[in-house]
Design a protein around this nucleic acid. Structure first.
Lengths: 201, 201
DNA sequence: GACACGAACGAACGATCGTCCTATAAAGCG
DNA sequence: CGCTTTATAGGACGATCGTTCGTTCGTGTC
């Protein structure tokens, strides 16, 4: 890795955790230069525009999400075990990754959902990819006979995303110590509702 | 209502819809002055600081939410009917109120959840109030015999909030035309799971 | 040793930000 | 009406924003 790539990555590391606190839109070249002990212009040259920097942060965020949440979960056997692993890792990933201020992409989703442009497109792309992964995982659990054949996989992914979001809000804003427990309870209820018909209770 | 109150309210109206698009943190005195055909200083004098303006917008938002979502729903008889009315109004309220860019408070929740100060406090207060209202409504449904006695009202409110948030994201960012249908499906499943034990299916 | 190249810097740009001060215009009231 | 209070405008402030320019430094190549 050449010198350029190296510092670019160092900048992205810092930008990543900065964006976690200030939002992708709240990123500032000046502040970022200060934190990386560089000049604004020197830093700027690595990206060419602020928007390009923001896009890089969003892509970085997606990659880390895949590394920290999805890849480890995919070592679980396909089906419910894998789905559960995704959810567990997902709920914890702001602690595992360097995300003092919460998930970058999720914050960006609220920030750019009504502002057309490359940033919104990137966020949308990332969240759609996650939705697809969830749907596929659910489908495999159905094929494995762990969930009922008439399970609506997209509906299940939809509700999983809801659990995630309210958990984040409860934890981060409402300081609710029960958030994680409630999240797991909601997940269990979701799975139980779609479990194959139990012969006896 | 004196002249002062009048223009102050006009400013708040504009600030409200502007904040819907740019976020409460993205509010700008200059832009707001332009839109209200006032000078920056003339507008500024009504609030004394930007933070005070932002707080006023948050309070305005809470009040409108109560007017548009809660008050009408409370005309329904207590119990499931009222809970359902709240959810329906809630899901629609960004269309009913003048919120082209989505719910102000919800966006502010993601924006300020890691930035201590009066703004975060105000957002937290508003969302906690909503949670309490949801919990109370659920409790009344239990008392009315429409939900099982062992229903965890706070858990139910938690999951309702999740349904709301994922619905907003699906609609606004992912352009999912099925979001409303899925939201109602999730709500129905939630209620069915806590319904009194059916004698026969 | 001459040269080319990428990386980083320092300075400045116009724009916009929130805020403050002072003067003028309008409104409310006796 | 005149007087007092309030509401608004105009202008300027220091700061920060993203961006551009020209220059310098260090490294590696012929």
């Amino acid at each position: 890795m050449g010198k350029g790539e190296q510092t670019r990555q160092a900048i992205l590391d810092e930008a990543f955790s900065l964006a976690s606190c200030c939002g992708v839109g709240g990123l500032s070249i000046g502040v970022l230069a200060e934190r990386t002990h560089m000049s604004k212009s020197g830093l700027f040259a690595h990206f060419g525009s602020k928007e390009e920097l923001q896009l890089a942060v969003l892509r970085e965020s997606q990659q880390r999400f895949a590394d920290v949440v999805l890849r480890p979960a995919f070592r679980q056997p396909r089906g419910l075990a894998r789905l559960r692993a995704i959810v567990i890792n997902w709920l914890d990933w702001t602690k595992v990754a360097n995300l003092p201020g919460g998930c970058v992409i999720n914050a960006a989703a609220a920030e750019f959902d009504d502002q057309p442009g490359p940033l919104r497109d990137e966020v949308k792309h990332g969240l759609l990819a996650l939705r697809r992964t969830l749907v596929e995982t659910v489908v495999k659990a159905v094929e494995a006979g762990e969930l009922r054949p008439d399970t609506d996989a997209e509906q299940l992914a939809f509700e999983l995303e809801g659990i995630y979001q309210v958990t984040q809000q409860s934890r981060r804003l409402l300081d609710d110590p029960d958030a994680d427990r409630r999240a797991l309870a909601a997940f269990d209820r979701l799975v139980r509702d779609h479990a194959v018909i139990q012969t006896k209770e």
